[in-house]
Write a protein that binds this DNA or RNA. Sequence first.
DNA 1: CCTTGCGGTGGAAGCGCTTCCATGGGTGGG
DNA 2: CCCACCCATGGAAGCGCTTCCACCGCAAGG
Lengths: 308, 308
Amino acid sequence: MATASRALSPRGSASDSTRLRVAAAASELGYTPNPAARALATRTGTRIAVVVGGHTAHVLNDPYVARVTAATASVAASREVGVSLHWLPLHDPAELGRLTESRDVGGIILVNPTEPALATVPRSARGRVAAIGIGSRIVPSFDVDNATGTTNVLEHLLVTGRRRIAMITGPAWLPCTRRALTAYQRATEAAGTPPRLIPGDFTATRGHHAATEILTRWPDTDAIFALGDLSALGALDALRTSGVNVPGDIAIAGFDDLPYATLSHPPLTTTTNPIESITTAAATTLLDRQTAPPLTLHPSTLIVRATT
Amino acid sequence: MATASRALSPRGSASDSTRLRVAAAASELGYTPNPAARALATRTGTRIAVVVGGHTAHVLNDPYVARVTAATASVAASREVGVSLHWLPLHDPAELGRLTESRDVGGIILVNPTEPALATVPRSARGRVAAIGIGSRIVPSFDVDNATGTTNVLEHLLVTGRRRIAMITGPAWLPCTRRALTAYQRATEAAGTPPRLIPGDFTATRGHHAATEILTRWPDTDAIFALGDLSALGALDALRTSGVNVPGDIAIAGFDDLPYATLSHPPLTTTTNPIESITTAAATTLLDRQTAPPLTLHPSTLIVRATT
DNA sequence: CCTTGCGGTGGAAGCGCTTCCATGGGTGGG
DNA sequence: CCCACCCATGGAAGCGCTTCCACCGCAAGG
């Protein structure tokens, strides 16, 4: 029985002949290991937790969170482990601590945590925690390369003759916002055009207001780049309501390439956010107990549709 | 130790005083039960599987699946169990059988399975399986009340003076499609208008084509009801491109109330699909080992926006 | 030819729970 | 006032695995 255990485990020391015989016997007997027993014996977790900052069940409606959860669940399924979804105030060390101490949790994926929140992760647990949508030295992080994504969008706008490009940002505390902002500032500087920045929060409503504000503050704007497709679509709606011709008068581009993007009229130019591959990388790192670099960036590819 | 176990378990027979003392000691010692050990001892699963029909990772992009997964994960988290997501050919008994036999799986939520697929669920496993988006006598099912939802939409259209109402359906094998279809036929019959049916598949592309087809086959159509917001938005797009005034010439209504619905121009009239509460009901049934009626329907509420 | 060392093997303990079972102290009926 | 009965309690077995440890047989070195 000890031998069988070793033969079945990739790390166990068993001779090849034994390994083969065990495998044959296992398939003949229809044997499947019991993950619960294994988890009990090895004191490892049997599920991986996706943790989102915030209090309410509202996270369920966030397509970003849903995609992360679904992708994690899919990776986990192949490893015979589960996934659980939590929302909690990320600044509250007690909550997060309780989760990291739960022997049942083999890994934690933090969605868009703040740097201070990350600091509350107990040192002992850091090997079991990865973050998505952030770059941090505390735990390995995974995100879309929004600097390059932003640069690509802006270059595309410049190539198509736009010069006075306004940007609707995301929450300022989000590293991805900051990275995109830097890219925007660099691009506008290189093009010799002054930056036109309006803070946003990824929502359509905010995008709508932001576009209106842009129209009044800088009436000669000829392009709007919104971090997040929802904001872009909100802005598009505002412009159309104001009788602005898109893309004739003003071009619009978003970020993320949500399914929404193809549904607008005209369809939205955007750049992809490969959430699934980002999540898969994070989950794999956790599940295989690999050590990952502080920040892994996944490429974003420009999708030119009809708003530019 | 036996007493502590009983005191902590809701079903165990322990006196109230003991229960209280155990609870006090537990919180003082910072005791948390080990789900793996419990699963091992009780021979119950440590996760609940969400199973979607189909072969590819495409399911990850389906907002419906993502919402089901996220909601399941959230219920499961409160019970200290996990979730895993699987896509497999639902007609293949072997795959599903393997999943039901895995002692690690405490419950299975089947998303939109066909009746023949359900029949492949091993009899021994039926108590651990629930279905979403279907009505079946084989396992307990949960769905939105799309008959009433459809009726409400159609009544709204009739009240606003529409008479020649076309409908873009969903896949014919889906029970929810059939229920909605019945409601549509009943409503049009009552209103004395002949039915105008175009098959759909919930996608925007198909909705687009369907609307074009409607325009050519029944040019005097004054309303389109699409099963699924995506199809409705596709139809909206087609009408706008054809220069049709919405809602002036033709009204459009969808089903599901996806976040997309507010982003269109004009915003889409639709009726809600409470996927989260449906999923919660299914997951709770599984986790609490309750016996649920063959079909539980959750109400859909009409959301009137600007396309009607 | 005997000893040392090493890799493969089986025995056995134990991971942290639940539950069967036997025991004991209480209550109600005779 | 005693006996039967019931309910709460603790002992102990076991859920299915992993891993420590002792063991054995082999190849290499003295």
